[in-house]
Design a protein around this nucleic acid. Sequence first.
DNA 1: CGCTAAACGGAGTTAGCCTCCGCTTTTTGC
DNA 2: GCAAAAAGCGGAGGCTAACTCCGTTTAGCG
Lengths: 198, 198
Amino acid sequence: MRADALRNRERLVEVAQSAFANNGIETSLEEIARQAGVGIGTLYRRFPRREDLIAAVLAERYLKLTECALTLAQHREDADTALTQWLTLLVEHMAIYRGLSLAVKEAIHDQSTALGRTCKEMMDAATALLERGQSQGTFRTDVNFYDVMSLCSGIVTAVERRAEKRADSDVPPVDPYLLLDVVLKGLRSGVVGGGAGG
Amino acid sequence: MRADALRNRERLVEVAQSAFANNGIETSLEEIARQAGVGIGTLYRRFPRREDLIAAVLAERYLKLTECALTLAQHREDADTALTQWLTLLVEHMAIYRGLSLAVKEAIHDQSTALGRTCKEMMDAATALLERGQSQGTFRTDVNFYDVMSLCSGIVTAVERRAEKRADSDVPPVDPYLLLDVVLKGLRSGVVGGGAGG
DNA sequence: CGCTAAACGGAGTTAGCCTCCGCTTTTTGC
DNA sequence: GCAAAAAGCGGAGGCTAACTCCGTTTAGCG
């Protein structure tokens, strides 16, 4: 890769990072290119899809989450605590850019996108946490990790929306940790078999 | 309202209904106007925002959900069963148009939109179901109805995404009833105080 | 220095949202 | 019935943002 290309790439990721943080993940790509001082063509050559840019921005963060999951899996202690800790991190991570939780949910099953592939590794590592708990009888066995991710993504989306409307009316604040607690409580095995028939 | 205006209005709602069902809620408004045989200006005069059209399409359905909530609230029997039944209906309802769950989540706090106002009545009726259960000790008292709606919306979003990608890879199907069961289980009081610290 | 592949960048195309306003149809008053 | 007025129609046009294409520029190498 040529030196100027590398420089531009880095600059784009840098600008995108702060643009996503300020304006959400839907920030105009032309705006990002302008701020980075490159042409729109340059941005598209390097990041053909918006997700590719998102994936680049998130790369380190995902790596950290993956490592964290691996570490938690190795310390073969309390499976409940392990999953709780990791999901807490995940929820905090997904709340960083407005719109991110949805983008992740979109990409989660799609190995053809950079975001999807990056996600995959992390998912694999974290899946182990759930499955360990399941084999120990800590968590109910009829849910898979996609289900858990989906619920967490729902939590983050709720927080995002609520934050946007905060100026409005009498909207109460939402506590992601509370919602996560509800989900985790629902995941624990206890007396299995709730009531929602299907 | 003039007769021709009423006719056009009905035609638009009719076309929008099937367009939303086939292409999701983000279908181009110009496409809807074209199919209805009216100009784009006519559509916008009657439905200034996309949400107004959505609200019109959903009006009857919301009314049914509201009535259902009221009925369930009056039969002062099992609060758990009541909420379970209603949320099951809700989830089924929100899965009808791709993107609807998000639109509802967007509008839920915004009384300035038609969708928000229609939602409000339904929410008020359903909130009673949760609160009855809470005062009876059936459900944990630290969550409000917005929280429950948010989690349900997350479930539906997951189902929508999964359905879109079904052609892909080895994606397992998702069961909304299962996820709803997880949420409901998490809502039941039992020994309150899970583990997700904040 | 000079050559070449790589990279650049922005003009141009497409698509959808939304507004504005001259024209048409319905309704109303007589 | 008929004409005036009110209501409604519809699409041209402005706008923004995604995305493509290709002539121009430049880094890197010998």
